[in-house]
Design a protein around this nucleic acid. Sequence first.
DNA 1: TGCATGATGTTACGATATAACATCCGTTTG
DNA 2: CAAACGGATGTTATATCGTAACATCATGCA
Lengths: 168, 168
Amino acid sequence: MLYRNIMHSPHAPAPHHDHDHCIADALTRADALCAERGARLTSLRRRVLELVWNSHRPRGAYAILEDLSQQDGKPAAPLTVYRALEFLVEQGLVHRIESLNAYVGCAAPGAVHSGQFLVCAACGNAIEIDDPRIRSAIDATAAEHGFRVQRPTVEVRGLCPECQEKVP
Amino acid sequence: MLYRNIMHSPHAPAPHHDHDHCIADALTRADALCAERGARLTSLRRRVLELVWNSHRPRGAYAILEDLSQQDGKPAAPLTVYRALEFLVEQGLVHRIESLNAYVGCAAPGAVHSGQFLVCAACGNAIEIDDPRIRSAIDATAAEHGFRVQRPTVEVRGLCPECQEKVP
DNA sequence: TGCATGATGTTACGATATAACATCCGTTTG
DNA sequence: CAAACGGATGTTATATCGTAACATCATGCA
């Protein structure tokens, strides 16, 4: 039932899905979006985006930095990566997972969504969701408190279906 | 006597509420809860809790560390504070605000609640809420994804009513 | 061509957090 | 009481995450 939906959702990939295709898709969408917006997806930024998409697990800035350094054969500076990530986050191509100090590729860039994640404590995968019930509940309670919402952050730590089976 | 920020929060509605009373209440509740549980609220842990409650704004571990060092006249080590905070968070006396890497006193320790905050980008106050609609929306969407919830984190960045008036 | 602007490089540093191991101190137990 | 035990705290060092300030490069455009 719903489990199957997960398996076929781009947000929660099957364990052995074609991840090269995932990456290629993400880059293609990013190219299109940036062209449309007149944003400059430079070579460096594109490379960083590709490294973020290296897995569906949020990755730390320094992990990406290492990859970048290894590719180039010489060490890159942290700022190099942080600046690229800042651009990517601004463009909605990448999300920052606050509770992990890490970054993950956005599953649906361009679409309006509010940064909601199911983060598996075991495998580290971050499943991006966009549940209007959560969003509207947040908007409602904020309104009741006279609070003006700018950026809602929802990060649910727990166990994904696969990891529940492994460690019940 | 330490300097204290007197901030407006739903738990202290008046802009110039009696914050000493806030702190005293928090400590009393902490004493009772820990006694009830057989948890050891040692002198150090109690002092750290008091320093967290110094304002209604989330405070960084190193800010607390400085206060502690100043009180003692000699520098304390980071671990001293981190270990105390770890205990306090475990006991539900303090919450960690992930998006700020900071800690704030729990408004209703002992009660079941799920860590939801309205964080003002201007004044820095963190208003703790416990909206069952948010929680049940999270539970529902998690269930639909076959995800087992361990710890939901909801941190809504925005502007509190007072700061909206100041900077509209 | 040369300027304006944004992107990237370089160096240094600040902020946040933990590892590994030693010591203290209250409680239990012989 | 003393010895053993275990949790709390102290000490030192280091890992991890993030930014400031300023220089240089690249790209598009007048």
